[in-house]
Design a protein around this nucleic acid. Structure first.
Lengths: 340, 340
DNA sequence: TCTGGCACTCGGCCCTTCCAAGTGCCAATT
DNA sequence: AATTGGCACTTGGAAGGGCCGAGTGCCAGA
């Protein structure tokens, strides 16, 4: 075994021990707990080298070493082996998610499941509108000058918006409008609908145009408004349990977890479902999250990910376990969405 | 001024000082900060009496006094004067809530506003279905054997559910069903709809009854399922800020704030909008909430409250300010709902 | 009924001491 | 060249001790 190999082994051992014990780990403890076959002094040399390269650090002189963000990064990228979920965990995922009755239920069950599996805070984005297609648009008159616009997507999501019309409308007009909108929107993705629906106004008589414009404008804003994308959160209590280590930093973290904008940035752009992504500590570049890592995965019924889900926890988290959990849940949810 | 009056003054002073400083308050500090016109020794006697009666307690011998739950209760019931909101606060409420576009937006803005005003955790219940009336029921065919049921209430709330039919249906059947359901449900409160809709099946031919039954069953379950009542939460970070005083108790508290069931019980039965209710510490009889107080108010467009909103914080909270804030926000939201 | 005085209690702060864990370096060994 | 044992050094944290101040309860006097 070459020297570099052993150094990596040492780093791995440090990460594992530190994650397990939450305490800086010294050379002696390392050789005791892992059978490395060399003496503490040798380990010390390796550790000094690792420290020079920036993978570990010591909180104070005469203390053990702690992994740096860079160290965790190396660990995640090259040193950790996939830790398969236990059978009970697999069963838990299935039984928990199979009971879901609709999309909202899937999301809320997923987020609680993730929080429970990882004992950290979980975040799940509702499947994004912008990648869905329109299944149906419904217009309902609530009052002579007030219409409810309901948008139904192929993912089973329903968005509604109330429109105040510039003038009273009658059922005939609303009915015609409903028919026309559905004729050109159903089955289309949102971008296409945007393109087609704008010309719709011209097909109506001048006296109705203002009304039609009001309705289509609302429909478009529903389609476009990505910031409407919702996010479910659970397990924030787990972060508190993770100890007083966060100390004062707990409050900004909790605040961050309440802000949709922050959460969406956290989950990042959902690309393809497969790879689980890990952002470690300072890689987040988000004020309250410098001491936290984020493990995310896209999910969705097809090749493209509709949305993301993930877990937020301290940098000193069990990466293999968390990655496995997030990956497994994302895969299973994707399968459920496909079946629907 | 009789003796009992002064004792109550002393209690009030203790509560106010303790809330302000977070530290046990002694006789000397009391006479210094409040011009009570008597000597510390006199105050000591009063304090001893108050302690005998269970209104205050001392953490240790030779420490100042701290109000008990019973003391807070007396303070809230008889000693605190209403503290009107400041002009900026009033403005904040208006500008913040007037921008709301729909019911969901009202709720999410309200909960954030409450959290910000009181610097505590806020909880707002979505207007309850069970007290609403039906404005419209829409059936949308998603597939030959799959129908989306959309229920629209007079509060602007929309509930949807997907039904898998026992057999394929055609547009004609669904259209007829839609018309009939609306004919008997629109304008009715939920209890009436329950009563009327069950007989509906019999009006259809035998071959369609299974289909009709499936749809009506789903509609009924949507009407009845109160546990579907959702709750919005914000400001949990404020609880962390409230200091390490919660210590280990923070985690169960955060968990409790994530559980719909607990939150709904916390908000309690919404009765009439007007009075703000306060539950103090052990009055909650909820595991994680023994050190917290809950200030709630019903709200809704009419005389009856549709739902509740409230604030959760440490027992050592600023009751007059919190009560004023919750009351003002509840009144303002009620006004908005009435206007809609 | 109130007040001033007085003895007493006790938690928190500060200081010191001590210890264990851990390091870095170096000379010796393989 | 790599590894090892030995050793001096650093340092945070725990343990102990003394001090101080805030606060109390009680009592005798106004």
């Amino acid at each position: 075994m070459s020297v570099d190999d052993r150094k990596l082994d040492v780093l791995r051992a440090i990460v594992e021990d530190y994650v397990a014990t939450q305490e800086p780990v010294g050379s002696k403890a390392l050789v005791d707990r892992h059978h490395l076959g060399v003496s503490p002094a040798t380990i010390r040399n390796d550790m000094a080298a690792l420290e020079d390269e920036g993978y570990i650090a010591q909180p104070h002189t005469s203390a053990g070493r702690v992994p740096t963000d860079k160290g965790y990064r190396l660990f995640v990228d090259r040193l950790s082996t996939v830790k398969p979920l236990s059978a009970p965990e697999r069963r838990a995922i299935q039984t928990f998610l199979d009971g879901a009755v609709d999309l909202d239920d899937v999301v809320s069950r997923t987020v609680r499941l993730l929080a429970q599996l990882t004992r950290q805070a979980a975040v799940v984005q509702y499947p994004s509108l912008s990648r869905s297609t329109v299944r149906h648009v419904e217009l309902v008159m609530l009052a002579p000058a007030r219409v409810l616009v309901v948008l139904i997507t192929d993912t089973g999501r329903v968005e509604q918006r109330v429109v105040d019309l510039p003038a009273d409308a009658d059922d005939a007009l609303v009915g015609e409008l409903r028919a026309r909108i559905n004729a050109l929107a159903v089955g289309q993705d949102f971008a296409s609908v945007e393109a087609r629906v704008t010309e719709l106004t011209e097909r109506f008589g001048p006296e109705d145009r203002a009304t039609v414009a009001a309705v289509t404008a609302t429909l478009l804003s529903t389609l476009i408004e990505r910031h409407e994308e919702r996010v479910a959160v659970a397990g924030t209590g787990n972060l508190a349990r993770y100890g007083q280590e966060f100390d004062h930093e707990l409050e900004p973290l909790l605040s961050a977890l309440e802000e949709q904008v922050v959460l969406l940035r956290l989950l990042g752009e959902a690309t393809s479902p497969s790879p689980v992504r890990v952002r470690i500590g300072s890689e987040n570049a988000q004020s309250g999250l410098l001491a936290t890592s984020v493990v995310t995965s896209g999910y969705g019924p097809g090749e493209l990910a509709l949305a993301s889900m993930g877990v937020v926890g301290p940098t000193r988290m069990d990466y293999p376990g968390t990655i496995a959990a997030v990956g497994a849940v994302a895969r299973y949810v994707s399968k459920i969405l496909k079946a629907h």
